[in-house]
């Protein structure tokens, strides 16, 4: 079961302070759907404002990003630039 770590404090209000969650999802899309079920509103919050780093590779706006058990998975704020 993939384990998701959440950087920062932006979504703690949804997760009641939890910063690491075990999930069934095997893609970023399924993660959004699953988390929205478990913590209403969190899925949309993540979709709008967060990117996902899988074993150090950052995916932004990528439903297909694959979540594997054993991978290091972080939700981090989306990045733009100048």
């Amino acid at each position: 079961m993939p384990r998701i770590n959440i950087a920062g404090n932006a979504v703690k209000r949804f997760t009641h302070g939890e910063t690491a969650l075990d999930v069934e999802a095997d893609t970023f899309l399924r993660l959004i759907l699953e988390l929205d079920q478990r913590f209403p509103g969190l899925g949309r919050q993540i979709e709008e404002s967060m990117a996902i780093a899988i074993d150090g590779e950052i995916y932004q706006d990528a439903y297909h990003a694959p979540l594997k058990p054993g991978s290091e998975i972080w939700l981090i704020p989306k990045i733009a630039g100048g």
Partner: peptide
């Protein structure tokens, strides 16, 4: 110095 495999303060591991 941060190197490949270093964990960033914001979570992920650099590569």
């Amino acid at each position: 110095a941060a190197k490949n495999g270093t964990k960033a303060a914001y979570g992920p591991t650099f590569r």
